[in-house]
């Protein structure tokens, strides 16, 4: 319930800031909890962490994807809207904060939902919402500096074309390019 209240309040708060850059700097510069409730951010952090954890590179929670998800859904990226995140969390964890559920249960619950969404291609509310939220988390992470250039490879000016790199000879070449713009759009 707290979460639902938040979105009404923050929705209004965000709408009263008219330009995207204002929203962005608001979220970048100040304590995010002034805009988003601590509960919502904790829940989103939990999702980000399950989705893309820290490994030898930082994961989605550590690079701060959660606050970006709020901007992205407000601005309807990946087909989201301003209630997508709370609607999803409400059906994912109807009894309360997802972040407070023991981690093993979190994994179990999200894995079930993920299977519904991507193996069964269910059009249930939760599966539909998760497809959107997952796309947002992936976008937030792989377009962050760490996701794009440390986890994957990023080169703005390659300067040459090597059409046939044998990745069995060079393990480091077996890492996807985040800067393969065309492949990213297809």
């Amino acid at each position: 319930m707290k979460r639902r209240k938040f979105i009404q309040a923050s929705g209004l708060g965000l709408l009263s800031i008219t330009s995207a850059s204002q929203v962005w700097s608001a979220l970048e510069g100040v304590d995010k909890t002034t805009l988003a409730s601590a509960e919502l951010l904790a829940d989103l952090d939990a999702l980000c962490d399950l989705m893309i954890p820290d490994t030898d590179t930082l994961g989605a929670k550590s690079v701060g994807v959660a606050p970006w998800l709020i901007i992205a859904s407000e601005h309807e990226l990946e087909g989201a809207n301003s209630s997508t995140l709370t609607n999803f969390l409400n059906v994912l964890s109807p009894s309360g904060s997802f972040a407070e559920v023991p981690q093993s249960d979190q994994i179990k619950r999200l894995s079930e939902v993920d299977a519904q969404a991507f193996k069964e291609y269910s059009d249930s509310e939760i599966a539909t919402l998760w497809r959107t939220v997952k796309a947002l988390i992936l976008t937030g992470y792989y377009s962050s500096k760490v996701g794009a250039s440390e986890e994957l490879r990023y080169k703005l000016i390659p300067g040459h074309l090597l059409p046939e790199v044998d990745i069995t000879q060079d393990e480091s070449a077996n890492r996807a390019w985040s800067s393969d713009w065309m492949a990213g759009k297809l």
Partner: peptide, 24 residues
């Protein structure tokens, strides 16, 4: 072409294994 991370939007998976898969 070889798809990059955006293919993850259409794939099942979570966590470290998923991250490692999308690394390739």
């Amino acid at each position: 072409y070889r798809p990059t991370w955006t293919r993850g939007k259409r794939m099942a998976g979570l966590g470290q294994d998923f991250k490692n898969e999308l690394r390739k």
